[in-house]
Design a protein around this nucleic acid. Sequence first.
DNA 1: ATATTGATCGTGCACGTTAACGGTAAGGTT
DNA 2: AACCTTACCGTTAACGTGCACGATCAATAT
Lengths: 333, 333
Amino acid sequence: MDRVTMEDVAEEAGVSINTVSRALNDKPDINPQTKKEILQIAEELNYQPNRFAKGLRSSKTSTLGVIVADILNPFFSALLKGIEKSAREDGYSIIVQDTDEKYENEQSAIQTALAEQVDGLLISPVQTNDQTIMDLRNSDLPFVLLGRHFDDLETHYVVTDDVKGAKTAVNHLIEKGHERIALINGPSHISSSKERLRGYRQAMKNHGLSINESFILEDNVMIEHGYETAKNLLAKTPSPTAVLCYSDFVALGVIKAARDEGLKISDDLAVVGYDDIFFATCLEVPLTTVRIPKKKMGKKAFKTLKTLIGHEENVTELQKIKLETELVSRQST
Amino acid sequence: MDRVTMEDVAEEAGVSINTVSRALNDKPDINPQTKKEILQIAEELNYQPNRFAKGLRSSKTSTLGVIVADILNPFFSALLKGIEKSAREDGYSIIVQDTDEKYENEQSAIQTALAEQVDGLLISPVQTNDQTIMDLRNSDLPFVLLGRHFDDLETHYVVTDDVKGAKTAVNHLIEKGHERIALINGPSHISSSKERLRGYRQAMKNHGLSINESFILEDNVMIEHGYETAKNLLAKTPSPTAVLCYSDFVALGVIKAARDEGLKISDDLAVVGYDDIFFATCLEVPLTTVRIPKKKMGKKAFKTLKTLIGHEENVTELQKIKLETELVSRQST
DNA sequence: ATATTGATCGTGCACGTTAACGGTAAGGTT
DNA sequence: AACCTTACCGTTAACGTGCACGATCAATAT
């Protein structure tokens, strides 16, 4: 059973293919009555447009590329979920690629996306290199950065207000009476790390607290590293009474390390995470964390990309969107 | 800057388009020397084949549809990761759709996939209805079911050996000295639930243990339900000393409920999960669980689908693949 | 010398859709 | 009566690729 084409519909309706095209695409120059009949017949025959013919003609697919750093990370899963939902509601399909936080994968993923001829690209860039992003700008494929951005690169992006987020978290810890507050941050060269560090410093300064520079550690985003880093941190004297982590993943590592040391979370060591991935509530001591509106972020990123695709060649001004975070206070502080 | 086509390459090489086609597609009837030159030029010009033209001609995209029940569930994330990786390595792109465990979404997702003209479909079906799957069989689109299958539906699938998995888990609990063992199962009409129940019964019977039918509960896969169900379960007298859960998600709910009741995991209540999602190790009491080789499963599903796509019209025999699980013993038992 | 073969390459059409363009008929305008 | 407008519709070419077919030429066989 072959696919139904416009020609089949045309034949059935006794009109030309073009008329069918006009009917299906809401074009003018068509009798409302014939249009109605054609749509009727198309429906009956279960006509499905051939997207390859469409794409070939118009060089517009209705497909977006999404490149995430690690699907297993619930943060990205949630992002992806938001993107997928709003894209689907808008008639877009998404092609997903996972870079495993590796630079070379990102590079080839972008190449693949170009070859796939997607209409646009959503990227949560890896941290090691921005060369690929620069290359991407030279092609005329619209793209939006997600979660991370590069200061020195003028691109569209959707991120969160990390200065404010970290500041609020530190303020919260200070209110709880903590003074020796550590920061296990992400890689220092990515924007979110820089800004959170800024927020951390501001909050400490505002409350007249001195900063123990050895309490500021740089880390990877993965859980295993959080564990190691926390081990080091807790060995220091005097040891911190509170830690702000770069992610809930890192916080998990910290909690593990604290458990090993016989420290009680909250009493002996207050921990604040970042992201609010869903099992932050499932821990023995539910985790206080800075909630990132992940689905909303995905949705917003899609909307942004869509306007870019709409305007195309027009030099639309740069979309730099910062979403607000929310401190969710639980038992770990 | 327009896209480079085969015509451009042909012109540059001083040959016809057809010759370029032959060179690029490893066809015979071509001089090795000219072939080499053409490939060289194609490389220099950075020629990228137009997949829409290709798709239109050959009605073969290199795209697969993947329909998952819930991306936020780490089980599906891991599955997706496995699929994505092996697909990418094989030159396939994947279009991902999320059904939110809702039947109507699955239905439209399949429609979308058909419209997208993917080469094949990988589906982790929702539990409520198999009508869509039946419809899908009537189209000639090859597809493979993932994780769940339907007894009465003759389709290709990749699942795990659930009878054995549950049996091993129950055996483990019995070895630990438990006799009052409960089962919080998934929805009773899906295959994995049925088989795990079978495994549970077999293991109990083999050890001469009587089964308290009120210890067998049906549940949804979501975490919130695990909590409620466990509440009910723990209120029973005599209460069970061990629980086998349908998923790690459910186990989390059980652990929460046990915590509310002041029960100590392992000592007062042994808990076994299913799936082995990555944060099973992150819990206060690391969770004993039946590990499903998720990435391998994704990979296997892709491979299976690929052979189906290869053989196309040929009536290949049904692929019913059962992967082995592995009991991972941790501190919760 | 002529016929045959094989290697190599070009020609032309088809895939399904869109859009520019031209055509037709009915009605109105000068 | 000759023209223009309007509303509607069909013809046709084009998007980039792959495949069937035919063409060419040199080498070999008869």
